[in-house]
Design a protein around this nucleic acid. Sequence first.
DNA 1: TTCGCACTTGAACCCTGCTTCAAGTCAATG
DNA 2: CATTGACTTGAAGCAGGGTTCAAGTGCGAA
Lengths: 134, 134
Amino acid sequence: MSELLTIGEVAAQAHVATSTIRYYERRGLLNPDARQSGRRRYRTETLRRLVFIGMLQDAGLSLDDIDGILNAATVAEWKAIGGRRLESLDEQIRKLQHAREFLALALLCRFDHPATDCKIMGAEIDRRLNAPAL
Amino acid sequence: MSELLTIGEVAAQAHVATSTIRYYERRGLLNPDARQSGRRRYRTETLRRLVFIGMLQDAGLSLDDIDGILNAATVAEWKAIGGRRLESLDEQIRKLQHAREFLALALLCRFDHPATDCKIMGAEIDRRLNAPAL
DNA sequence: TTCGCACTTGAACCCTGCTTCAAGTCAATG
DNA sequence: CATTGACTTGAAGCAGGGTTCAAGTGCGAA
C-alpha cells in the first residue's frame, strides 16, 4: 500500500479541521506530499509537522513565527525566534500572575461598583493613573 | 471651572486612544457625563472607570465580561463572572507554564528541523498523536 | 479673520486564525 | 446507473478589539 494519508485522516489524527490544514497550506506552513486524482496525500512525517505546529501555537507563537521557524535556514535563525518568544512567554506569565492577584483582590470587594466604591480597587486605579506612558 | 475633562484629556491620562473611548461608548461600557457644544465631557470618576476597564482587560476579561461586571445589578452577579475568570486564569497560567517548558526544551535541540530530527521533540509529538480527542 | 487643532459622526477597514459556502469531482456502494 | 461521502476550488464570512476615513464643527491664538 501507499502509506499516504488523506487530508481527512491527517485531520482526525492531529485533531484539527481539514479546513485548517488547507489554510496552513495557503500560509506555506504545510504541503501535501502528493496528489492522487487531485486529492492531497500526506506522509506520516508531514502529519508530525502539523502536530509540531500545534505545539508551537500552544506556546503562543503566531503562524508567522512558526513559518519562520519551519522555513528557517539555520538553527540559529529558528532559535532566535524561539528565544524571543520564550522571553515574552515569561513576561506574559508574570503579567497573568499579577492579573490573577488583582482579580482575586477585586473579588474580596464587597461593593456593587468596585471601580468607584472599593478602597482596594481605588488604590490600584490611582497607581495606573499616575503611571508613566505605556 | 467645570472640572470636566475632554475625551482627549481622558485618553491621555488613561493611556488609550480617543477612538477606543468612543468604541467603549458604542459598546455601552462608558458614557460621557455631559456634552459641551457637542463634545464629550467626563468626570474624574468616569476616567477611573476607564482605567478599571483596562485592568480587567489585563486580567483577560473580554469586553462582554466587563460589560457584565460594570452593569451588574448585584455583587453576586459580578463576582460570578470574576470567579469564573479567576479559574480560567489559573488554568491559562498552568498552560503557559507547560508551554514554556516545552519551548525551553525545543531550544535545546541542535537540529535544523526540530520537528523531524530531534528526539526530544519526537517524543512530545508522539504523545500528541496518541492523545485522545481534544 | 484665518489658521490649526481637537473634536463630531457613521461607515468602512484591519488583523489573526480560521470556518463556511457554492459548485463541482471522484471512488465506492447498492 | 444513481447515490453517498469525502474531497476539490476560490471567495466570502466571522469574532474580537479596535483603527481609520471623510466630511464637517467649534474655538483659541496670531
